[in-house]
Design a protein around this nucleic acid. Sequence first.
DNA 1: TTGAAAGCGCTAACAC
DNA 2: GTGTTAGCGCTTTCAA
Lengths: 344, 344
Amino acid sequence: MADVAERAGVSTSTVSRTLRGLSTVSPEIRARVEQAARELDFAISRRAASLVTGKTGTVAVLVCTLNSWFMGSALSALGPMLRAADLELNLYVVPDMAERAAFFERLPARRNADALLVFSFDLTEEETSRLDDLGMPVIYVSQHVDGRPSVYVDDVAGALSGTRHLLNLGHRRIAFLQAVGDSGFSFSSSERLLGYQQALTEAGIPLDEDLVVTTPFPDKHGTARALGQLLSLREPPTAVFAEHDEAAVATIRALRAAQIGVPEQMSVLGFDDHPVADLFDLSTVAQSPSDIGRTAGELALRLINDSDADHAQHIVLPSHVIPRATTAPLLQPQSRGQEQTGSP
Amino acid sequence: MADVAERAGVSTSTVSRTLRGLSTVSPEIRARVEQAARELDFAISRRAASLVTGKTGTVAVLVCTLNSWFMGSALSALGPMLRAADLELNLYVVPDMAERAAFFERLPARRNADALLVFSFDLTEEETSRLDDLGMPVIYVSQHVDGRPSVYVDDVAGALSGTRHLLNLGHRRIAFLQAVGDSGFSFSSSERLLGYQQALTEAGIPLDEDLVVTTPFPDKHGTARALGQLLSLREPPTAVFAEHDEAAVATIRALRAAQIGVPEQMSVLGFDDHPVADLFDLSTVAQSPSDIGRTAGELALRLINDSDADHAQHIVLPSHVIPRATTAPLLQPQSRGQEQTGSP
DNA sequence: TTGAAAGCGCTAACAC
DNA sequence: GTGTTAGCGCTTTCAA
């Protein structure tokens, strides 16, 4: 910076003021400084700046993996959003329990970020309270934590509308397919099940535990097995509501392999509006991970800049049913169902 | 840090030495300092440290999106790798041309990272040379740039082996399906086409331009259209080599919709070993994005720590053919082909 | 509107 | 093995 100051014939203070865009610099000097900076390829060292301002200009993001549609979409939206606010994005990838323990033990983000975004973890009480005294706003994304700022989709309401959609089509025997990932049940999973149950209850349909089946995911044959349970019931379902689209697609494939027409003999509904949903013409309950990412970023910004902001605010994002070709009225084959015939 | 020093009854230098793990601290003092640090929840400010060491302790990563299997896997491996080396990961997401221009205009990573990893961009000469005077090692990942450190899979060799596999199965009419994404042809695309052509040439088979078809991707009906071209040739292919697995899966679905048996009447080969490949039992040429990510991180580390290291080194990672159920010998139905029958 | 000087929190060089 | 001191590159008073 001293070089720039010398070249422009001003003090470092003036260079600093110019580069920060303060209006207290006369136009001619500003021009001189900017040119000098350009000629010397000078860029501010945020680290030196943060030392004196006390702000790091960085948002930390904690994720367990990036290898999913949800994470990919959310971060692809969060990144540019933060960049627009001139914030750096510091990524912590914590794929297993060991690394997770290490993260919470050392909390490397401490003093190195202005806020932390925690994505889709199911944190223990202990972990949550550990984050409480991190000395920065912590935003919980895609999960709700009482008393802490959170951003998420209302999975209960989403599953409720999805199930209502099936009910409105005349289905009464509706199965719910839980897909358990490597890390055990997720938060969304139980919320979605809850919405399903609520819808049945409000329709006066008694809950039948046999209609709720669980399969490991991803697992090539697990879905077929789960389906087998349903199809061998005394009164099999006429519709399957899968916890997420990928499980729904696996269901469709298993059904077609068993020569069971979708949606003629079985309606299938997913959740997420994952890209495969469009590909398979799957009816689904859509959520928008990019909205989640962006909204979380905006909340972070607000909490950073405004210490009076509500530090327990929950932002609940909407979901909506997208009827496509895999749900149809009960016992009443539709023309749109025939487009599907013979297609894999 | 002063607080910790006071609490432990030592100087800040000793605290610094202890926390950095230097061996020049006596065990008893070390214990005192560590306890004091723990009690005060003290963590080093990397930003203050970097000011004096000149190292930022950060690796910057430039990506255009995170929303792909490749990026997700690569970063999910890179993250923990960097963490193990006690480096922060600073992510720059540059989804469109405007943001890209802004990035190269301002180069926000300048002075704020020790190295830059550029993922899967097709950079212009100008952009590359702009990065040259960034003052830090720049590693090109999943692309090769002459004279700069690069990490990538040998797409030519991969496509060569893939095509040879089809040739060895007796196929002589082999189509190549190019899948053009939103951003136009990618580097890999043309390399893979080249490998395909090389294999045919070495087998003494003249190149037939009609066998190379192009489809937009993702596009629900594009693949069927491209397939239509192939199937209406005077001498249709008996095998299709798709540029990547997702296009291969689309091809399989289009073929099955048209009642053309895979692999009985048409072999289909993909590239990548994307998760869908396993799901669809798709034969493919496998690459490992996580290896790419990890290797790139290791190279970055080497270039950061050893200024004598070769700054033009290209690391080429292997790919290998994984035969699954979608490729079979020409005109000679196999038992493994029958497993497929009736399955969607 | 600009400059001089102090100091952010840390590490490194040197002395003990 | 430990403490003292100087200074990394910035921003921020404060004075001019």
